[in-house]
Every structure is written in C-alpha cells, then in structure tokens.
C-alpha cells in the first residue's frame, strides 16, 4: 500500500472562514484585514504597506488633534472620534453581495392578497409579517382562531414564508393585525387589487 499522504493544514481566516488567500474575494475583505495583517502577512504584502501608511496618517491626525486640543480639548477628541465612526458606519450601511452588488434593506410592510379559487372560494395570503419580528407560526394560529378557519404557514415564491388563511378575511384583517401587534402600523399594510398595490389606510 502506498504511504499515507499527510493532510495539508490550510490557514483559514478567523473572520470569514475562507482560506486566507481568498479573503480578498470574500464577503467582507475590509473586516478580514486586521486579522490577515496579524496572521498571514506574507499573503498580502500590500496590506502591510497600507497599514504603515495608515499609521502614518493616524500619527499625522493625532498631531493635528493635539494641535487643536491646544485650543480646546473637546474639539480635538471630537474630530478624531468622528473620523473613526464615519468609516465604521459606511461599512454597515451598504451590505455588499459577492460581485459588487449592493443589498438593499427590505422595507417593512405587510401585503395582503386575495386569491380566488373555485369561483366562490378564496384564500387570503398575508406576506411580510416576519419583517416585524412576528413568529409566523404564532400568527397563523391566532388568525385561524380569530376567523375560525384554516390558517397555515406556507413557503411562497422565492423561498419566503407567508401565511395562507382560508376564506375571504380581507375585510377586517387590518384591524386585527394592528390590534394584536401594535408594532404594525396601519400605514404599512397594503392590499393587492387587480395587480396593483393599494394602501389599506
């Protein structure tokens, strides 16, 4: 039998979990940078240079801050704190998808749709409750109890979960929603009528 090859130990990034050399293509290279600088400096020589430059920048900033603080301590601290926070908040605002696409935060709204089946029977579909932090299984139970019909959590299109309630309950579901969950404002509830979105309020 051939000799056993030894397993290769791969350096995985502590932040994103990818092999360190792929961090630059990972979901958030910026966040990995500090870790990489410490643990895998040989893979990204550019980073080290960057870091040095940054250090120089920082030093310069500090010098400036000191200069300002000569005039007033509060002002100097404020400015340095600001410069730190702006770079931080920028990263949080824009969530980058792989490929440079930017992910938008989803709007919190509840969409109610009536689907007719078998001519005189219909199903009311409630979408988007989960965006308000409501447990869908609880919600469906409550809806079923209130309207005395079947209500279930169903996987809708694009893998989103929605609640199907048997029967046409569109007429007073709005009131029920706003009463049971005060977090849901009436202005965030929409109906779909003839393929168009209509505000409930």
């Amino acid at each position: 039998m051939a000799e056993k090859p030894q397993p290769v130990r791969v350096l995985y990034c502590g932040v994103c979990g990818l092999p360190a050399e792929y961090c630059e293509f990972g979901p958030d290279f910026d966040k990995c940078k500090p870790w990489l600088r410490q643990n895998a400096p040989h893979l990204y020589p550019d980073l080290l240079n960057d870091a040095k430059e940054k250090d120089v920048d920082k030093a310069a900033e500090q010098l400036q801050a000191v200069g300002i603080s000569g005039a007033g301590d509060g002002g100097g601290e404020g400015s340095s704190a600001n410069s730190g926070s702006t770079s931080g908040s920028k990263q949080e605002e824009v969530k980058r998808l792989p490929g440079g696409k930017i992910k938008k935060k989803e709007k919190q709204e509840v969409v109610i749709e009536k689907i007719v089946r078998n001519k005189r029977k219909c199903v009311t579909v409630v979408k988007g409750l989960e965006l308000f932090g409501i447990k869908l299984s609880d919600a469906s139970k409550k809806l079923g109890k209130k309207f005395a019909t079947g209500a279930s959590v169903v996987k809708g299109p694009t893998d989103k979960e929605q609640i199907d309630v048997q029967g046409d309950i569109a007429y007073d579901i709005v009131e029920f929603l706003t009463e049971t969950w005060p977090d849901v404002p009436e202005s965030a509830i929409f109906f779909i009528e003839d393929g168009r979105k209509v505000a409930a309020a």
Partner: peptide, 19 residues
C-alpha cells in the same frame, strides 16, 4: 484542501475567481 492531490486539477485565471 487537506488532500489536494486526490483530484485532477483545472486552473482558472484571476479574473474568473470572483465569478
């Protein structure tokens, strides 16, 4: 990654990595 030599290898250019 632990046993890289078990499979036949293809290599893509740098521009393709992202995709």
């Amino acid at each position: 990654h632990q046993y890289p030599d078990i499979m036949k290898k293809f290599q893509v250019d740098r521009g393709a990595i992202k995709f």
